[in-house]
Design a binder for these strands. Sequence first.
DNA 1: CGCCCCATTGAGATTATTCAACCTAGGTGG
DNA 2: CCACCTAGGTTGAATAATCTCAATGGGGCG
Lengths: 233, 233
Amino acid sequence: MKKTDIGAAWQGLANCKGCGIRDSALFADLTESDFNLIHLPIDTHMVAPGEALYHVGDAPEALYTVRSGLVKLVQYLPNGAQRIVRLLRAGDTAGLEAALGEPYRHSAIAVHPVLTCRIPRAVIQRLSTETQHLHQQLLRRWHQAVERADAFLVELGTGSARARVARLFLILMDEQDECELFSREDVGAILGITTETASRMVAELKRQGVLTELRFNRFRCDRVALRALAEDS
Amino acid sequence: MKKTDIGAAWQGLANCKGCGIRDSALFADLTESDFNLIHLPIDTHMVAPGEALYHVGDAPEALYTVRSGLVKLVQYLPNGAQRIVRLLRAGDTAGLEAALGEPYRHSAIAVHPVLTCRIPRAVIQRLSTETQHLHQQLLRRWHQAVERADAFLVELGTGSARARVARLFLILMDEQDECELFSREDVGAILGITTETASRMVAELKRQGVLTELRFNRFRCDRVALRALAEDS
DNA sequence: CGCCCCATTGAGATTATTCAACCTAGGTGG
DNA sequence: CCACCTAGGTTGAATAATCTCAATGGGGCG
């Protein structure tokens, strides 16, 4: 009951104007008057690890701003295996395609406990036609999504398994010296390697002292060593 | 002198309104009056295989509509190797980031002889603020770019080398029974495998009769057999 | 306290890479 | 016109990396 009691708990209406991450979020550029155009509730949800914000093929009725935590975007292969296509963190937007009325292309699943704002499609469409600000933000978000997709392909889909794991840690660290990992299965699904290989590589880095496990799946990382490993072929 | 004589040859101003691929191109939705907003020349270029539309880091002064041929978007790895991140064909747009004033993230290089329209950034920015039509198209193009990127990652970056090659051919065929291939080096750079492995796989498919080489790098393909091979793990 | 999930590890099979050699077609220069 | 030369493609053999299948162990949860 430790995890499920925070599952998809409703947290009440969001206060966008006073939002702590607003400067990095979709609504970053909105003006005072733009906010008056919002006539539908935007509410905040907690999502527990393993639960979904939405699934492939769901009716695209909303998009989501990630306020905290980590979300994976997953696509499924014909044989049923899954491949993780992107990771989203605080300030990122999930389900952008809903703004275009397109079906969701992925399932968006919480990896760590996640706090999100659910923004109904109608709000986006209204704002998108009424204010240039949001339109520009949407373009920028799409641009960002493509950059991330390309980075996943190039950095995490190329080179030896060891190099890929090293690059994944460098991405997860993001300015910090520590980072929170997740299941080896997910590591494999991101890097395009098997769960066992992912496990072996992480374990090896721990033995070499490049990673120090502070507590379960929480690591202190040696950035210099990781960068050296990331160069392998 | 056979190839270079068509290299980047200037072909004169384009007639967008009467363009043969307009219904699938960036200017698809523009109205008669929208066209009057274009005050800068849009011209057509031939680009020979191996030549670039633009390079990473070039000043983002234009974006390009591909009218015919095949273009690869390339990113370079720290070790100098290249990875092909997407393929663009007739109707696709290269260098969308220029519309946002962002630097080019890739080099766009012709694989087969390419005919393009060069659209100056200023034209896009003008149209983009003046007409909703173009704005919507831009959003849709970004959306499409993300879909393609994800498809590359999932379909071409997963499974055995044989399955990846089979999936690449299925993408290249695109409704037809024949397709035009390119160098084994490029095949490798798309699939994240070595040139030799790419060559072996293509040669093997030829021996098995799944592919029939009609002329150099032009193949008749057995779609059913390819689909079966594409399923391997 | 016992079960279950997941990380880890081992050993062997499989696959892909590496390094080299060879071959062919097309272009070059004599 | 022919010999040469180069760039790709193809292939072989040895090596290295990854996958597969299987077993073990620990930690959290019921």
